[in-house]
């Protein structure tokens, strides 16, 4: 299989992989935790793209399939037993609806934790957080005086 053929067959998957990897790079490389949470969202969206690409179908004469919403023609075709239009597969769509919901839930929880980190550490930069932790100043409970001390360090 030569490269051109592979690329024309799978370019959609490849772009999905590229988008995923941009997100993953952000998760690993970025030191700002808000940015990490957003990058995580990009990563997951890439996966959604992969799944949705899976559902697409072309007819033999080169047309794109139709959205998996049955029209009355389809029903008529069933009754008359003529070949109706070709439809995309709805199953990946369903799965991705669920996954989108999950991803926004993760974003919400991550941001809730980040807001608390900002309160307690006074910063949202990972290396500064690590500095503060390395100094052992956070070994205490979450109190106002402790919070102010952490904030003063930044």
């Amino acid at each position: 299989m030569n490269f051109i053929e592979a690329a024309s067959d799978h370019y959609n998957y490849w772009i999905a992989v590229i988008v995923m990897m941009i997100g993953l790079y952000g998760v690993i490389a970025k030191r700002n935790i808000v940015k990490q949470a957003i990058s995580l969202g990009l990563f997951q969206t890439g996966i959604f793209l992969l799944y949705i690409s899976m559902a697409v179908v072309f007819t033999p004469d080169g047309k794109m399939g139709e959205a998996p919403v049955k029209h009355s023609e389809r029903l008529a075709a069933d009754v008359l037993s003529v070949a109706g239009p070709v439809y995309d597969n709805p199953l990946p769509h369903v799965l991705m609806l669920t996954a989108i919901v999950v991803s926004v839930s993760i974003l919400a929880v991550a941001l809730a934790i980040i807001v608390n980190i900002k309160r307690c550490y006074g910063t949202v930069e990972e290396d500064e957080i690590l500095d503060i932790e390395a100094q052992g100043l956070l070994d205490g409970p979450d109190t106002k005086s402790n919070r102010e001390k952490a904030g003063a360090l930044v």
Partner: peptide, 30 residues
Amino acid sequence: MHAVDVAFTEAAVGAGISTILILGTLVHVG
């Protein structure tokens, strides 16, 4: 790609709720 339901959800969630969520966080974190 004819994933109309998914597109609908992504528009509502990604462009709507997520944006509000992140903006709300930015108020706290700068």
